[in-house]
Simulated assay, not measured.
Amino acid sequence: MAAFRDMEELCQGLLSLLSANHAAAQQRRLLGRYGQMMERLLEAQDGAEQQLREILNTEKDVAQSLLDAKEQACQGVAELQQIEAKLQKASEEDTHLKANLIQLTRELEDLKEIEADLEKREKEVDEDTTVTIPAAMYVAQLYHRISKIEWDYECEPGMIKGSILCGEKEPCVLVVGM
């Protein structure tokens, strides 16, 4: 803007030179102003060139950072796809494990029911055995008191061995099966 004003003043000065005929003094003065104006124009041109270089460097930096950001975005997308694939695989494995857990839970419940049934049967067998064995022992003790038979309780299950003194003090072996 200042350069345009200077040019306008130069033009007005030239017009006044033509009209006043003070040519030599005004010509020197105008030439001095013309030199100043040219210096300002050169300075403005240098400043504009410097600003253009800075703008170009800034554009290069921005373009490079944009390329870097695009590369990072591509890497991020690739990583995201890998993570999504891992997540899908983990989800499938989780579903499979949950199905196995449900199946194992059912099997455990079935085994608990079987165990409870076995415990119930075991108690029934124990009750039956408890009732039978004392009765057998009672009978054996009764026989011993009546007949003086010596019973061997350490024989095979379901058998009772006994011995009695025969007339000559020689024992006779008696085997009773149950």
Rank of each mutant, 00 (worst) to 15 (best):
Arg29Val: 05
Arg29Gln: 15
Leu30Trp: 03
Leu30Lys: 00
Leu31Gly: 07
Arg33Ile: 09
Arg33Gln: 09
Arg33Glu: 03
Arg33Ala: 01
Tyr34Phe: 15
Tyr34Arg: 15
Tyr34Thr: 15
Gln36Lys: 05
Gln36Trp: 00
Gln36Tyr: 07
Gln36Phe: 08
Met37Leu: 14
Met37Ile: 02
Met37His: 09
Met37Glu: 00
Met38Cys: 15
Met38Tyr: 12
Met38His: 13
Met38Ser: 10
Glu39Tyr: 03
Glu39Trp: 08
Glu39Cys: 05
Glu39Ile: 05
Leu41Ile: 00
Leu42Arg: 01
Leu42Ser: 06
Glu43Phe: 08
Glu43Lys: 04
Ala44Gln: 12
Gln45Met: 12
Gln45Glu: 04
Asp46Leu: 06
Asp46Thr: 08
Gly47Trp: 09
Ala48Thr: 10
Gln51Val: 00
Gln51Asp: 05
Gln51Phe: 07
Leu52Pro: 05
Leu52Ser: 02
Leu52Asn: 13
Leu52Ile: 01
Arg53Ser: 15
Arg53Val: 13
Arg53Gln: 15
Arg53Cys: 08
Glu54Ile: 09
Glu54Leu: 11
Ile55Pro: 00
Ile55Tyr: 07
Leu56Val: 04
Leu56Thr: 03
Leu56Met: 07
Asn57Val: 12
Asn57Thr: 04
Asn57Ser: 05
Thr58Ile: 12
Glu59Trp: 06
Asp61Lys: 05
Asp61Met: 06
Asp61Phe: 05
Asp61Cys: 01
Val62Phe: 11
Val62Lys: 13
